[in-house]
Computed example of a mutant assay.
Amino acid sequence: MKQYSAKEVENLLTGEISLNIIDVREVDEVANGKIPGALHIPLGLLEFRMNELDQSKEYIMVCRSGARSGRATQFLESYGYRVINMSGGMLDWEGKVE
């Protein structure tokens, strides 16, 4: 499983590359802030909403600590999606939130 640190994701966001970030935390967790532009799909709904994702794009998965996003990464990889886990999750995030 490919992984980026929170700092690597933050640095990529400052570049000109458009990132596709999916936050798999629960609604109450996201209410406290998420990475700007991230799509919120709770882990429990990912199986039912993965049809909203484009298999030609690469996605960065985010959660609180990196564990749930790791499971989401493995799940989507098993269906042929290109996915990267953000290790450390929002606990390590020092960038802006919305």
Rank of each mutant, 00 (worst) to 15 (best):
K2W: 06
Y4P: 05
A6D: 03
A6G: 01
E8R: 08
E8P: 07
L12P: 00
L13R: 04
G15Q: 15
G15D: 10
G15A: 11
E16F: 11
D23R: 00
V24E: 01
V24F: 04
V24H: 05
V24G: 07
R25S: 04
V27F: 13
E29V: 00
E29M: 09
A31P: 02
N32V: 14
N32F: 14
G33L: 04
K34P: 04
K34Y: 09
P36G: 09
G37S: 11
A38T: 01
L39D: 09
L39K: 14
I41R: 00
I41G: 01
P42R: 06
E47W: 12
F48T: 14
R49L: 13
N51P: 10
N51W: 13
E52P: 05
E52K: 11
Q55T: 11
Q55L: 12
Q55D: 09
S56A: 09
S56I: 08
Y59I: 03
I60V: 13
I60P: 01
C63D: 12
C63T: 10
R64D: 11
R64T: 11
R64A: 13
G66Q: 10
A67W: 10
R68S: 05
R68A: 03
R68Y: 07
R71Q: 15
A72F: 00
T73S: 06
T73W: 00
Q74L: 15
Q74R: 12
L76E: 00
L76V: 03
S78V: 06
G80L: 05
G80D: 08
G80M: 10
G80W: 06
G80P: 02
G80C: 08
Y81A: 03
Y81P: 04
R82Q: 15
V83A: 02
I84R: 00
I84F: 02
N85W: 03
N85C: 06
N85G: 05
N85T: 02
N85A: 07
N85Y: 07
S87T: 15
G88S: 11
G89L: 03
G89C: 05
M90V: 02
M90P: 02
D92V: 07
D92T: 12
W93V: 05
E94L: 13
E94K: 15
G95D: 06
G95S: 09
K96S: 14
K96M: 09
V97S: 14
V97M: 14
V97C: 09
V97T: 15
